[in-house]
Structure formats: C-alpha cells, structure tokens
Design a protein around this nucleic acid. Sequence first.
DNA 1: AAAATATTACGAAAATATTCGTAGATAGAC
DNA 2: GTCTATCTACGAATATTTTCGTAATATTTT
Lengths: 130, 130
Amino acid sequence: MKNNPLPKPTESELDILQILWEFGPSTVRFVNDQLNKLKTTGYTTTLKIMQIMAEKGLVARELSGKTHIYEAVAKEEATQLQLLDRFVEKVFKGSAAKLMLQALGNKKSSPKEIKQIKKLLEDLENNKEL
Amino acid sequence: MKNNPLPKPTESELDILQILWEFGPSTVRFVNDQLNKLKTTGYTTTLKIMQIMAEKGLVARELSGKTHIYEAVAKEEATQLQLLDRFVEKVFKGSAAKLMLQALGNKKSSPKEIKQIKKLLEDLENNKEL
DNA sequence: AAAATATTACGAAAATATTCGTAGATAGAC
DNA sequence: GTCTATCTACGAATATTTTCGTAATATTTT
C-alpha cells in the first residue's frame, strides 16, 4: 500500500481544488461552470485536468449514475502549508518573518485581522513552544 | 520608450535572481557555480536562462573583456511583493491574514522577528494609513 | 602561431502543463 | 425503439520551461 505524499498541484489544479474545497464534492460540469466565472475553459479541458488529478491522487471520484463525483483528497490547510513552505523557501530564502513584514507593510488588513495576528504573536511570545 | 512591467520570473529565473541579489553583478560562470551548490545544472543551461532573462528585461548585461557581467534589473523587494500578491490570490484567495496565521502558527520565528512584527502591527493600528 | 581553454550564440530536444477535437458510451425524452 | 443531450476516454496539438549539444569566437598558455 502506497503512502506517498501528494504532489504539488499545478496552477490549474489548484483552481480546481479551491472549488472543491469551497463547494465540496462536485461534478466536472459544476467545476467547469465555476471556473468559467473566472476564465473561459472548455469542458473537456477541465475534465482532462480532473482526470489527471485523480491519477495523481489529489482527488478521488465515485460514479453516480452516468457522471463522476469528484472530491478533494488534498486537504485545504495541508496544501496551503505545503505551498507556503515552498514559496517561503524559494522567494524569501526561508525567512517567514521577512515575508510577513512585506505582507503586512503592503497589504491592507482589517483591524479585526490585525488583532487576531497580535493575539497569536503574544501567544507565541509567552509560550515558546506551540 | 517602453515601460512595461517586468514579467513574473519562472522558478529557474528566480534561483538566478536570488544569486544576483545576494552577490551583485556576476558572470554566468559565477552564477552557475553558485547554482551548483543547490542542484546540478550545466553551464549552457544557466547561460541560456540568463540570456532569456536579458531578453525579458529581468537582467541587464555588459561586456567586460570576453565575458558578460549580468546584473539584476528586477529589484528584490518589488519582485517578492509581486510574487506574494499572486501567491496570496491563488492559494489563499486573497486573504493575507490567513496566510500569516498559517505561517506564524507553523513556522518558528525568532523573538526578535516577533517583536519586529508586533511593532509593525502597532504602527498599523495607530496609523490607519501607512 | 598553434594548442588549449573559456565564452557566447543558436537551435533543437526533453520535460511539463494546458487545451481541445473526436469517438464511443449512457441516460432520458419522445 | 430512435433521437438528443451529456458524459467519459483518449490522444494529439499547443504552449511553456528547462536542458544541453554544437559551432563559432575570443582569450590565454606554451
């Protein structure tokens, strides 16, 4: 029994995962309709990518009548974290702090979000271990 | 006179930019040697990518004797920010706060870095505009 | 100057990702 | 049943990125 880590999704695959995360198990038709709110994509293109994702194990599918229902196997937080690690490594040479300083300094965050982050920082300061 | 925004660098291009940012203007030979500390890459491969980067405007080059000296045109902070924007959009659907919560919760940051971030957050709270 | 060494230019091959046409299968409407 | 709409499978075409072989040019060594 294989237990390989899931591969890094490509950009198109990530678009599809976002939809499956948001709406739960879906048909290709539904996913394609959602995708087309952002960019035009042919039905067979979406189908093909979802088939590839199934081969890679990023999604699972189950037959329901004549159509397949696709479900994300890659979990949202785990995938985000995997991509974040890579991104920090590649772009910020491993310095998550530098990333955050740039993100905070240049993006508007709501006061509520800022409070949330401050609280987390205090927790981090008090509790060296998390 | 053109003033187009610089294109998003590919992964290999980013590896090269990191070296030029760190060491300043360099020859292909030097960049390739540095790259080979991370992964094996043939000299002509590095040369080709740097030539493409010059076409795109990501780097500039100047002849010095027989060799070219390449220099980053894309600035480090601006490039990081450009990539960060894209990344937040694609992976976190635009929520920088969510990204930071994940990054803070899962990465170790030094106390000094945490203080730095806290200070920035206070500035953000006091001064709605930055 | 000839030989050895290092560099650039060019283009093609390989690897990866994306797009879509076409054919065949299935389900529902008539 | 037959017709129509929808879906899947398959493979090929396109696009992008990465890799590298080869030839031409220039520099250094002997």
